[in-house]
Structures are given as C-alpha cells and as structure tokens.
Simulated scan of single mutants.
Amino acid sequence: MSRLSTNQLSLAYGSRQIVQELNLHVPDGLITALVGANGSGKSTILKAMARILTPMQGGVYLDGKIIHRQPTKEVARHLAILPQNPSSPEGLTVRELVSFGRYPHQKGFGNLNAEDNRMIEWALQATGMSAFSMRPVDQLSGGQRQRAWIAMALAQGTEVLLLDEPTTFLDMAHQMEVMTLLEKLNKEQKRTIIMVVHDLNHAARYAQHLVALKDGTILYEGNPEVVMTPQMLRDVFNIDADVIPDPRTGAPLCLPYGLAEEETAPSTTASAETITTYSEDRIQAMA
C-alpha cells in the first residue's frame, strides 16, 4: 500500500530534463532511501514530492489526489520536509523554531492553542531537545540543530517525513545520532520516511526500502538485501565493490575497492546465496 506515489513524473530545471516518466510507490510505514550518484535526480524527486518543484509532466499523488492541485496547508497537514542545510534567523530559540511546525493547523495568524503546545512539547521530548528548548538554534551542535529541525517537522503532526541528506556535514557521531532518531520514529510511531542518502551503508542499515537512481530513472528497487549488490554498484555508481553482511546487523555492507572498468576479472564478492542466508537470519532476528 502507498499513500505517496508518482505517475509518469517528469521534472526539469529550465530546458534541462532531470527525471523522465518516473513511477514510484513509497511503501507506507517504512524508511525509504533514495540513492544514486550526484545529479541522478534524488533531491529533485524529493522537491517534487514536497510540492516545491512543479512537474513538467505527470504528477505526485497523496492519498490518490494530485499533490500540486491541493492547498498548501492541506498538504502540510500530512507531509513535512526537512531540506538540505536549513537555516534559521539569528537568535531564534529551539522552541520558537519547533512552533513553526504548527502553522498548517492554525487559522490565520492565531496564537498557539493547547493542542499546539502539546504537540510542540511532544516533538521536543521525542527528539531529546526538551533541555535545549530555550537555547538559540545557532548555538547548538550540528547534531542538535538537525534534531531541532526534525522536531519542527514532527510538530506538524504529519504521517510522512521527507528528508534531503539529513546527515550532510555532520561528523560520524552526529550522523549516527540523527539516523538512530529517524529509526526510532519509524519503529515506534510507524512514520513513513523518505530520505535522500549519500552514505550507502547508512541507507542499507537504516532503511527497509532502497531506490537506486541513475539519470532520473529507477534502475533497482527493493529491500537492501536485494538491491545492494556488486552489479548495482557498478551500474549506478560506476564502482567495483565487495558486498558482505554487516557482522553486527546482517545488513549488506559496501566495501568499494576501485572504479569500474569495461571488463574486469571475475569478482570475489560475497555470493547472492551468502547475502540471502544472512538476510534470512536478519529477518528472523528482527521477528
């Protein structure tokens, strides 16, 4: 089942077409990661899904309705987006930032009501930002800032979250902090999350559904154990890599060792049978 989907979606910047006749169905209640090389159309697709970019052809559908024909506030009650490198006015506190998430639910420019305040407090608590609520956003660490912006998205009370490279420019600890939070939101609240991810191992570890794109076209799609293969890495990223099961999680782990060439010797990568065996073990462990 899919509340959010695209049908024959084509996108362009000026005369340059980026995405061509894309048909994508986002699984409900899962984390979906869009992966691909730079310029593959990942962020462009996310912008169209968030109603930021208007299609040149086809459409994005939310609950069976074309999203670009729906009122902005109506869409914002069901779908929230965290863009790349968001910025806030100097001196704005975390709580003030999070309160902006309640705008779609307000009439005119009314004050925050009891429900608004309840959602703000819940979002702060869910993201571990309650202790920082009165601190200026520009005085936070990278990971804390990302959590503050995620809290704002949560305060919207939407069932769907779109995130464009949520770990960009963060160090390893802050990357894990953000990804662990998203995993928690998905598992505990069944949020549908669609995110653009550069780190393939993050995508395979935290997402249950991968969409591998090249030149605005889906080349591979499915669960990480099926999608993350040496052949996919050659076709999509032009790299040679071993794919082995992560010793801790069982998720496929990408170990690149060179740029792909036209003809290469037989690979010594883990076999499909090995990946399948580990995938079954992983599924049983999660059951």
Rank of each mutant, 00 (worst) to 15 (best):
M232R: 01
L253G: 04
N186Y: 08
V197F: 05
Q189H: 14
T44G: 03
Q208K: 12
V35H: 00
T217D: 09
A50M: 06
R135A: 12
S267G: 15
N111W: 03
M179A: 08
A241F: 02
M195I: 05
L34E: 02
I31D: 11
N85S: 15
G128Y: 01
S88N: 07
D215G: 09
H174F: 12
P230Q: 01
V35R: 00
Y257L: 07
G14M: 04
T168P: 14
G250N: 08
L62E: 01
Y257A: 04
R69W: 07
D116A: 14
G216L: 08
A37G: 02
L97S: 01
A207F: 03
V236S: 04
L46H: 03
E225Q: 11
D199W: 06
K47A: 11
F100N: 06
G29V: 09
M1S: 15
G142N: 06
P166R: 03
L182H: 13
G250Q: 03
T158I: 08
E177T: 12
S43A: 07
P27R: 11
W122C: 00
V226D: 14
H25N: 15
L22C: 05
V197Y: 05
Y220A: 00
I193L: 11
H174T: 08
I45S: 02
N113P: 01
A37T: 02
L255V: 15
D171W: 06
F109G: 11
L34C: 02
S2P: 09
V196G: 00
S271N: 10
T54A: 05
N7H: 12
P166W: 02
A37E: 03
E21K: 13
K107D: 10
S130A: 14
L82I: 15
K184M: 13
R16H: 11
G108M: 07
A12I: 03
A272E: 13
I31L: 07
G58F: 01
G101E: 05
P27G: 02
P252G: 02
V60L: 02
V75E: 01
D235F: 02
L200E: 06
Y206R: 11
A265P: 08
F109Q: 08
D242F: 15
Y206K: 12
I45R: 04
Q20K: 13
G157N: 11
Q208D: 14
N7S: 14
L210Q: 01
L163H: 14
S88G: 04
E90Y: 09
Y257R: 07
I283N: 13
L233A: 11
T269L: 03
G222D: 05
T6L: 05
P71G: 10
N7G: 07
Q208A: 10
M232A: 12
E263I: 14
M172N: 11
L82N: 13
A287M: 14
G64C: 07
L210F: 04
I31P: 01
L30R: 14
A48M: 05
S15V: 09
R234D: 00
